[in-house]
């Protein structure tokens, strides 16, 4: 039994939606009725069956359509994928990680055969069957990082570690919550997080950096982050702000259910073995308000979180214009009953 890949769009007519099974496995990010920053990092170990944590690299029903959307973004703007010259080895590390994990978790869809440096990679959903020499860039149609991340959901930030800091020296970024690889390339951890409000003062980034630089091989970690997106658009980039920024003005009480999405990022953090670099896969999950309120606990809780969110955070996440409309809409689903602790629906 394999995954039933949906045919859908993340632009123009926006036909994206989640199947009921996909709604149930949505990584709802709030474990209580309020939200504030925390270094909410935990070990990235396989989780319950039928959750997005079941496999360390999750592939879901949106895979094929997301990869088509990525190809369109790259055709218009090749700078969404960049790798500084010293990061090629990290690219091979990433290629190995993603191929090995996918082939192990989804043998019906992906297959990897290795004889020494001679590798054969079969990706059935995308119709790919390539044989290449591991470590030899000339045997692949793209650099190793670009090759494998054109076949992997989520963005990838590949970070060099040196001088006690992390450096954004490579990446594939097409499904981002309003940040730009082209702007951040070459920056260190504090520089690329400079725009985040409140967290610097709380010392969160100093602690987070200390944790991340000590991530070890075989012990990946993860955290969830969230924002909201109007229309199920993956590419909410600064480069294309003119295409999506005005969507925020189109929210009305009538269209909240279909137009407003909670956007959750599953960020994981991995040490790469040959390069000693780190990779952060940043996987984006979208859910419509109509789909979210199908779970009464999630509806109550998200209403309370959004209503009580500090203004600085709402501004930073770009929610300010439409927040009152969405809070009002969600309030219909909140009878004031207490919610149970933890993330999962009741």
């Amino acid at each position: 039994m394999g995954i039933n890949f949906r045919k859908e769009t993340f632009r123009d007519d926006f036909t994206f939606k989640n199947s009921p099974e996909q709604v149930r496995r949505f990584p709802f990010p709030f474990n209580e009725d309020a939200y504030m920053y925390a270094v909410n990092i935990e070990p990235h170990v396989p989780g319950p069956k039928n959750s997005v944590f079941e496999h360390l690299i999750d592939v879901d029903e949106h895979y094929v359509s997301e990869m088509q959307d990525r190809a369109m973004v790259l055709a218009e703007d090749p700078l969404r994928c960049q790798s500084l010259p010293h990061m090629t080895l990290a690219g091979w590390d990433l290629l190995e990680l993603l191929m090995v994990e996918k082939a192990k978790s989804y043998p019906e869809h992906f297959e990897l055969t290795r004889e020494g440096d001679r590798w054969r990679w079969v990706n059935r959903p995308l119709g790919i069957d390539d044989t290449f020499t591991f470590g030899d860039v000339s045997t692949l149609p793209y650099g190793p990082m670009e090759y494998i991340t054109r076949q992997s959901q989520g963005d990838f930030a590949v970070l060099d570690q040196r001088d006690g800091n992390l450096w954004m020296d490579a990446g594939m970024v097409t499904t981002q919550a309003d940040w730009s690889l082209d702007f951040d390339i070459g920056m260190n951890f504090f520089e690329w997080h400079a725009p985040v409000p409140l967290a610097h003062e709380k010392g969160i980034f100093t602690r987070a950096l200390k944790f991340l630089t000590n991530i070890q091989q075989g012990q990946p970690a993860r955290r969830l982050n969230w924002t909201m997106t109007i229309n199920p658009r993956l590419d909410t980039s600064p480069e294309n702000f003119h295409k999506w920024g005005t969507d925020r003005l189109t929210v009305t009480p009538e269209n909240v259910g279909n137009k407003v999405h909670l956007r959750v990022e599953l960020q994981s953090f991995w040490r790469l073995p040959r390069s000693n670099a780190l990779v952060f896969p940043i996987r984006c999950y979208l859910i419509k308000m109509d789909e979210l309120v199908a779970q009464p606990k999630w509806a109550r809780r998200f209403h309370r979180v959004l209503r009580d969110l500090p203004d600085e955070l709402a501004d930073y996440k770009g929610l300010t214009r439409y927040r009152p409309t969405v809070v009002e809409w969600l309030s219909k689903y909140d009878d004031g009953a207490p919610t149970s602790p933890g993330f999962s629906p009741d």
Partner: peptide, 12 residues
Amino acid sequence: SYPVNLFSLDLR
């Protein structure tokens, strides 16, 4: 233990 690198080459 798994290998840990605190003396990495600077690949630049």
